[in-house]
Each structure stands twice: as C-alpha cells, then as structure tokens.
Amino acid sequence: MGAKQSNLHWYVLAQDWNGCKRRLQKTNGAEAKSVNEHGDLPLHYACYNGLAPPDIILALLNAYPEAVRQENRLGRYPLELAMINYQIDDPYREEVLSLLRWYRPSSGDAADLNGLLPGIFSNKPPKQMYSPSALCVVCMEVPSTVAMIPCGHICFCMNCVSTAASCGKCPVDRCQIEGLYQLQEKQIITTHQSMVS
C-alpha cells in the first residue's frame, strides 16, 4: 500500500482496534474521511480484512457517515467488500452487514423513522405482497403495514421496523431485504381483508 495512507488506515491494516478508536478520538473523526491513492477509506480497509468488530465499523460510520455510500477506484462499496470478506460463520458477519446496510446518522428524534432510514423506503411496492399475519410479527399489537422488498412479505408495523429489519432478512423466508415499502391505507385494508376471506 502507498504512502498516501493516513495513520487510521495503518491502524485498521494492523487490526489495532484500540488504536483505531484512539486515532478517531484524537483527530475528532477527520481521518475517517481520508482516501488513499486507490480510493479506499479506512472503512473500506475494515471491510477488506473481514475481521473488524462491529464497534469499529460503527465508529468509522459515526465519524464519516457518507463512507457507506462511497465506492473505491475499483467500484466497490464497503457493504460489498464486507459481504465478500466476512466469512459466513463469522460471529460478526450479520451485525456488520446490518450496520452497513441500514446505518444512517441519527436525526436526534428516535420516532422519526424516515429520518433514520432515508433511501430504504421505496415509493414502488414489491411485485406481489403477502400478509402472513394481520398484526406486526414483533409487537403483535399493531397492524402490519411494512412490506419487505423483494419478497413482499408484510410483517412489521412502522414502530417495530427499524429494530426488526436491522438483521437485513425477512422473518418469513429469510431472504435479504433490499428495501421496504410502507403500505398506503387502501392497500392495508385490501391486504388484511383478503386474509379473512
């Protein structure tokens, strides 16, 4: 690797996780934005080695939230690198993939789901929608109004979706969630009436 790397790049390469935290603190997160000659941010490096613990991934994301949507010169995003490099049986894999897939900087209002998850909700519904339960599968109190994309299972209410979908998989068929769709009032009535008939 080249000389244009920041100290934070080197700490990630060395897998010195405590050093990474100290460096982020010392530079007030500024080095999380540093790019080497290959277009790699420290977050890319953390995903390349497939060994960075979730708290390091989160610290890098908190320091530079835009890193999750930045590709390197090879056209690779951090999520793609993590999917390739974290082994299937790695205990960190699901949490790291979930962080990279769903992380958005906090708006300060925990109730503002769209502020916390911009870009995840689609205006276009899945091709087909299925309602395994009229009630949210998490709280079992509120009607389910959120469909998973691409599978179309309507499983969650808006109150539970941020925590329930954080694993990145549909609870019914375990497919990877690529997005979410909030049903409109007419769709909710039609979907839940079809379950009764």
Rank of each mutant, 00 (worst) to 15 (best):
L61G: 08
S106Y: 00
M129D: 02
K4P: 05
S34D: 15
I149W: 14
I120K: 13
N114V: 10
R73P: 00
G29L: 09
C139I: 04
G19R: 00
S106N: 04
D16G: 09
S162I: 06
E80Q: 11
N18F: 00
D173E: 06
G115S: 11
A110M: 05
S98E: 08
A82W: 09
Q5F: 00
L116A: 09
L117V: 14
Y181L: 11
K33Y: 14
C139Q: 02
L74K: 12
L100R: 07
T145V: 14
L81F: 02
V196A: 07
G108V: 07
L135R: 04
W17V: 10
H153G: 00
P132Q: 09
M195L: 13
A14K: 09
S162T: 13
I154C: 10
S166F: 13
M1T: 15
Y48Q: 05
Q182Y: 00
L51C: 15
E80S: 06
A14C: 07
D55N: 15
E71W: 01
C47M: 10
D173L: 06
A67M: 04
Q193T: 08
K186H: 08
V146E: 03
F121Y: 13
E37T: 00
V137S: 07
V146A: 02
H192G: 03
L13I: 04
W17C: 13
T190A: 14
P126N: 12
Q70P: 02
D112M: 06
V35F: 01
S166V: 14
S194A: 07
T163N: 14
H38S: 11
K26L: 11
H38Y: 11
P91Y: 02
Q15M: 12
G75Y: 03
L24F: 05
V172M: 04
L74N: 15
M195P: 09
Q87M: 06
D16E: 12
A134Y: 08
Q193L: 13
D89N: 13
P54T: 02
S194T: 01
A82C: 02
A147K: 00
Y103R: 02
E71L: 01
